[in-house]
Design a protein around this nucleic acid. Structure first.
Length: 570
RNA sequence: GCCCUUGUAGUUCAAUGGAUAGAACAGGACUCUUCUAAGGUCUUGAUGGGGGUUCGAUUCCCUCCAGGGGCACCA
């Protein structure tokens, strides 16, 4: 509807005023009911070019649009300083309700598109537990995957785990020095972290240790048997651990291409870079890309011939582009790496792999420790993600125990899982992704107020009413029976579902969808307080049940797009 | 030093150049013989400072201040 209104205005204006270059104007979703459902600023934008009073322009446009409005179930109102507000009439609202009932969980989804979008996210590092800081990339990435799929794109969800590089030289060196096979077998992840921390701390003041690490990695790249064996051990245990975490948070990433996968492709990148004269070989043997502008140079090969993260990233860019021809590659990685991706995107274009424009770094703020600094794994300050999730489930369980003691234990556990994990995810997804988050247990595990449980609770209450009604809503829509403000406000809000998803996906900002769901829950709660359903007269009861049933569909659908489950009881 | 990013109630966060800057938590006052009180109603309270562009700026530009991050042999 939003885009239809905009298009209609555009046509009307160019016809009426004969404007060739239409200045950009907006058709926004109104924030307040008294401003209608949509509002346009077109008259104010045109005021200067046309040298006319904006109110006068608004009236002219409105008159021209009148027929079109009636056809589409819209009424308009012109308000100073020159807004044109559009109100959807009851007929229009009835059509929406009908569509929700018909399409169910597909309501708001887009038609199938040919474009392929690659979304790279999560990408944990081998030999380290997944920490809270992996939460953001994993959850934001997953919700983008869900939204773009819903909109009809062919989405390739992909992760690029770090299993190669000098840090594995450090680990192998440490394992050879202090490794204990027994301890390793008992708790491999903990042992790997210990080795890494111990080594890094010594290496900080000891140059020879760093040299040793580089040497061990070099040997790994040259296929040294013992080093490869140790590395495989690390890899196997790590992937097992990742799978556990993914299972717990309900994330599935079908395509996993670890750094080491691209080893055979590195040579070609080096050849591309040298033959195209993009990179220069230094006297010490290193290979560096220098940029024309003031972007700092990017190293592709060390003086000892070993490759770097950037080399492997470029290899994967080439691989992906040639294999899938994506129209967009979205990479969900923290703020930290902004400069790095600038460099890599530039080189990708210089090498002729793809235009820079199809590459998008979706960056986000970092999770900081209580002192406001970043979590440094090297100093062993990491908070494992599983700890956070377990604590969330524990807290949810406590609340359920207090409020809903009649449910069987098994169902209670299931609900605690959905609520606890949902709360953690929603906390992250409901805020603007660019700001840093200072880690705080209470903040992250909030189960009250503007949170996942708030939305989930609203859903459970609707479901409870539907269960108690003992009748199936007829599905017949008699919109004239819905007269109360609370009913119409609810419907008006549901109307915008599809637009919000599009907007969220386009901006790569799931928080708009989260905000939308909070407001939807708020509206259903207002409805719940004031409008009786079960005790209403038969026809009205049926209409109201149809209405809340469709609200439930949207809540579920929206929460699922954020990667959060809902539950029938809680 | 250069680059990226953030700064909004006591606290944690919203706000697509629009209309009276929204929530939540904390504080205060109400609300379960009525469909789940993880709810609802009322209430106190904010755009870091200074310029500029605009009919209109939390949003765009400049500058200063403060936080976080980055700047070739780590990833």
């Amino acid at each position: 509807m939003q885009s239809q209104i905009k298009q209609a205005i555009k046509e009307t204006v160019s016809k009426k005023f004969g404007l060739k270059n239409m200045p950009d104007f907006s058709v926004d979703i109104s924030e307040k009911p008294e401003h209608g459902d949509y509002a346009s600023n077109v008259a104010m934008v045109l005021a200067k070019t046309l040298k006319k009073n904006p109110l006068e322009i608004a009236h002219i446009i409105d008159m021209e649009l009148e027929k079109w409005n009636i056809k589409n179930g819209l009424k308009t109102e012109i308000v100073p300083p020159g807004f044109i507000n559009f109100f959807i009439d009851t007929k229009g609202l009835g059509l929406v309700l009908k569509e929700i009932i018909k399409k169910k969980e597909k309501f708001g989804s887009g038609s199938k598109k040919k474009e392929t979008i690659i979304i790279e996210y999560s990408s944990p590092n081998i030999a380290k537990p997944m920490g809270v800081h992996h939460l953001r990339t994993t959850i934001i990435g997953q919700s983008l995957v869900n939204m773009y799929s819903f909109l009809g794109y062919k989405v390739l969800a992909m992760s690029f785990p770090g299993d190669w590089g000098t840090q594995f030289g450090s680990l192998i060196a440490a394992y050879k020095k202090w490794g204990d096979a027994k301890k390793f077998k008992v708790s491999p992840i903990k042992e790997m972290l210990n080795l890494y921390v111990r080594f890094s701390q010594l290496a900080e003041s000891d140059e020879t240790m760093q040299e040793e690490a580089r040497l061990e990695f070099k040997k790994l790249e040259q296929n040294n048997k013992e080093n490869k064996r140790i590395w495989n051990l690390f890899r196997k245990e790590s992937f097992k651990d990742f799978d556990k975490v993914y299972k717990k948070i309900g994330v599935k990433i079908p395509l996993v291409f670890a750094e080491s996968f691209f080893e055979p492709y590195l040579k070609q990148v080096i050849i591309d870079a040298t033959t195209k004269k993009i990179a220069q070989r230094g006297v010490d043997g290193s290979l560096v890309v220098k940029f024309k502008d003031d972007t700092p140079p990017l190293l592709l090969q060390k003086s000892d011939g070993a490759t770097l993260y950037a080399t492997r990233d470029l290899a994967q860019m080439k691989y992906r582009i040639q294999k899938w021809h994506p129209s967009k590659i979205i990479i969900v990685v923290a703020n930290q790496q902004t400069l790095y991706f600038n460099q890599v995107f530039k080189v990708t274009e210089l090498l002729g792999y793809a235009k820079k424009e199809i590459l998008k770094h979706v960056k986000f703020g970092m999770v900081l420790d209580s002192t406001g600094k970043k979590f440094a794994t090297r100093e062993g300050k990491l908070i494992p993600l599983t700890d956070v999730l377990d604590e969330a489930i524990k807290r949810a369980k406590k609340v359920i125990g207090k409020l809903n003691s009649k449910l069987p234990q098994k169902e209670k556990d299931k609900i605690a899982n959905i609520v606890g994990i949902g709360a953690v995810k929603f906390f992250d997804l409901s805020q603007n992704r660019l700001s840093d988050i200072v880690f705080d247990w209470n903040k992250m595990l909030n189960l009250k107020g503007a949170s996942a449980p708030y939305v989930q609770y609203s859903y459970a209450r609707i479901k409870s009413i539907i269960r108690k009604s003992k009748i199936k809503p007829s599905g017949k829509i008699k919109i004239e029976l819905l007269k109360e403000d609370e009913e119409l406000n609810l419907l008006r809000h549901m109307f915008h579902f599809a637009e919000i998803i599009k907007y969220s996906a386009l901006k790569y900002e799931p928080n708009h969808l989260a905000e939308y769901l909070l407001r939807l829950a708020e509206k259903i709660n207002n409805f719940y307080e004031k409008i009786p359903i079960l005790s209403a007269e038969k026809e009205i009861k049926d209409a109201r049940l149809t209405l809340i049933n469709s609200t439930a569909i949207i809540i579920k659908s929206g929460m699922n797009l954020l990667g959060i489950e809902v539950t029938e009881r809680m």
